[in-house]
C-alpha cells in the first residue's frame, strides 16, 4: 500500500502521457494529466510556504541566533501573500467593470504589482547580477592554461567575451572587408565570435543535447518501470 500503489500511479500516469502522443483519441487525457500536474505543482508551492512558515516560527519561538531575520522573512511573506490574495489596489477590468474581483492580480498600480516592481524584481535581478562577480572570481582562481584543452577553453571564452562588447568591434575594426580576394572581415572579433557560436558551439551543444535527451529517456523509463524507486524515500515509514 505504501510503496506499491505509488509505483502503479507513477507508471500509469507516465505511460498514459506517452500513449497520448501516439493516439489522437487519448490526446485529451494527456492534456488533463498536465492540468492536474500544474494544480499539484501549485499545491507544492503552498506546501513549501507552509514549511517556510513552520521553520521560521520555530526559530522565533526558540529565540535561535538570527531570529530577527526570520521575523523579517515572515513579515515580507505575509505582506506579499495578503496583498496578492486579497487583490489590494486592483480595480475592475474594462471587460467586466461591475465585478470588483475581475481585475488581474498583477494589475499595474495594485499593491501586488508594487511588491513585484519594487521588491521582487530588484532583489532577484541583483542576486543574479552578483553572479557576474563570482563567476569572474571563480574563473580567475580555477582557470589555468595548463594544456591544449584548457587553452582552447580560455581562448574561446576570451574571444566571445571581447567579441560581444563594443571594445571587440573597435579593436578589429581596421581589418579590411576584402583582402587578396578573400573576405578578410571574417577575422574581425565580432565575426569570429559569430563563427564560434554558430559552428563549434552549435555542434558541441547539439552533441550534449542528444546525450541529455538519451539520459532523460533512460532515467524516465527506469522510473516508470519501477526500476528506480529512490523517489519513494526510505522504507521506515
Amino acid at each position: 500500500m505504501k510503496r506499491t500503489v505509488p509505483l502503479i500511479i507513477a507508471g500509469t500516469v507516465g505511460f498514459v502521457l506517452i500513449v497520448s502522443y501516439f493516439i489522437p483519441y487519448t490526446e485529451s487525457w494527456g492534456e488533463d494529466a498536465m492540468t492536474w500536474f500544474n494544480i499539484l505543482a501549485a499545491i507544492a508551492f503552498v506546501l513549501g510556504a507552509g514549511n517556510l512558515v513552520k521553520m521560521h516560527l520555530k526559530k522565533i519561538s526558540d529565540q535561535q541566533a538570527g531570529w530577527g531575520y526570520s521575523a523579517i522573512t515572515l513579515a515580507a511573506f505575509f505582506f506579499t501573500l495578503i496583498v496578492g490574495m486579497l487583490k489590494i489596489g486592483v480595480t475592475p477590468s474594462e471587460k467586466y467593470p461591475t465585478n470588483a474581483w475581475a481585475g488581474p492580480y498583477d494589475q499595474a498600480g495594485s499593491a501586488f504589482r508594487w511588491v513585484y516592481d519594487y521588491l521582487f524584481l530588484p532583489l532577484s535581478a541583483t542576486m543574479f547580477a552578483m553572479l557576474a562577480f563570482y563567476i569572474a572570481s571563480a574563473a580567475f582562481r580555477a582557470f589555468r592554461a595548463k594544456n591544449v584543452e584548457a587553452i582552447a577553453l580560455l581562448t574561446t571564452a576570451f574571444i566571445v567575451l571581447l567579441g560581444r562588447t563594443y571594445a571587440g568591434v573597435w579593436l578589429t575594426d581596421w581589418i579590411p572587408e576584402e583582402s587578396i580576394g578573400l573576405e578578410a572581415d571574417a577575422l574581425r572579433l565580432d565575426n569570429v565570435t559569430g563563427t564560434i557560436m554558430n559552428t563549434f558551439n552549435l555542434a558541441g551543444m547539439r552533441a550534449i543535447t542528444i546525450g541529455i535527451a538519451l539520459g532523460v529517456a533512460s532515467t524516465s523509463l527506469k522510473v516508470l518501470l519501477g526500476v528506480d524507486r529512490s523517489y519513494l524515500g526510505s522504507t521506515d515509514d
Partner: peptide, 18 residues
C-alpha cells in the same frame, strides 16, 4: 536576503493560487 526569501515564496504562492 530575508525580505527576498519571504516575498518570493509568497509571490510564487499567489501566482500559483490565481
Amino acid at each position: 536576503e530575508a525580505i527576498f526569501v519571504g516575498s518570493s515564496a509568497a509571490y510564487a504562492m499567489v501566482v500559483a493560487f490565481w
